[in-house]
Design a protein around this nucleic acid. Sequence first.
DNA 1: ATAAATATTTAGACTTGCCTAAAAATAAAA
DNA 2: TTTTATTTTTAGGCAAGTCTAAATATTTAT
Lengths: 222, 222
Amino acid sequence: METLTQAEENYLKAIFKITEKEGKSASTNAIAAVMNTSAASVTDMLKRLAGKHLLHYEKHRGVALSERGNELATNLVRKHRLWEVFLVKMLDFSWDQVHDIAEQLEHVQSEELVERLDAYLERPQFDPHGDPIPNAEGKMATRKQVLLSALAPGDAALLVGVQESTATFLQYLDRMRLSLGTGLRVKERFDYDGSMSILLNGNEEITISHKVCENLFVQKSK
Amino acid sequence: METLTQAEENYLKAIFKITEKEGKSASTNAIAAVMNTSAASVTDMLKRLAGKHLLHYEKHRGVALSERGNELATNLVRKHRLWEVFLVKMLDFSWDQVHDIAEQLEHVQSEELVERLDAYLERPQFDPHGDPIPNAEGKMATRKQVLLSALAPGDAALLVGVQESTATFLQYLDRMRLSLGTGLRVKERFDYDGSMSILLNGNEEITISHKVCENLFVQKSK
DNA sequence: ATAAATATTTAGACTTGCCTAAAAATAAAA
DNA sequence: TTTTATTTTTAGGCAAGTCTAAATATTTAT
């Protein structure tokens, strides 16, 4: 079992994140943006990771993770999300506080630890932000979720996830009394700016911007 | 709050460990032995840490931690021992498996995390090896403990700690059915080699070597 | 008290991961 | 299809942390 530095692991995760969204390969610049570093540093690291057969690299062509790179990246995501569950469920952190800590905990090297943590938490399927947690084999649950912005007036739904996990966005949601599991119904949609007024749990009514609607995943109630 | 690299933190802990035992200052060679590195590397790091005012350094004179260095080292010990408790109490690891994992976990930077972990574990005073856990102010409980080797035939005692925490020693203790909290009574002491035969919990009788006796801390029953 | 042994420091070099500036390749626009 | 803009790579350098070999200090032993 190859052992990677934390920097190497972070690059793998960044590439994983970029490619899982777009499907296609990750560009040097895109990686540099996510890693908050220079393109030159990225090129260095890509060569290094290619040398370890964790990704496929050809000059000027962008990169994609290899089978092995994908496994390792998935395991990192698994660890990150399990630790987030631990922090929220066991240590009572709020969902906007856990990212940075999990970012460190995910680098702890011990498969036994991950397995026991998973069992202790009763094999959760989703993290505090509604993101699916890969199991030990790398498989994760899927949900038929859509963006809140895709709902029409009258539609009822359950808030099941957030697209963005920045502390400021999550704190905004707290203030609006929006949390995972909250039931809602679209009352009105304003074509002018795409904002919506929605009813929470059948009573309270709030209005949220289009930007917010595009960062909330919901599951339509039949 | 200064942020240290893991290497810097590990040196602090090593110096802390050496000086707390002997009381006196730590020599370059002693540090190199604990850190499993060369004396030259140690000298480099000592200069670095002295520059950060974490220890007092004069060429060829050995080093001692400064006030601040001591605080940081104590906090590392606190984190290490709290994580060990977590691993054993919550995740059901055995006491011989937790050192290496705690060695990694102790570097996670978040005072909030330590505080919450401490509370979650109900502010334990001792870790799974019987070592005292410093509280947030750096104070730790003391116990009137002695080495088992200091007991005389007829003395009754409770096993409360181990001096050495290597996996092989701990596994040996498991095999002998010796664990923290075990009650024992010295039956006989053999002057020939310092070994002892002892009665466990009033029934089973075992014989252990002098070396083992010198690595077990006990509390005499009045 | 001097020689021999041991401990420590200096010097120089290597790797990892980062940087900036400049060169080269690719993509976009005229 | 050339020119222009953008992206990517190369080149050279820097800091942290490590190493070995050589120089210097200190301790121990004769």
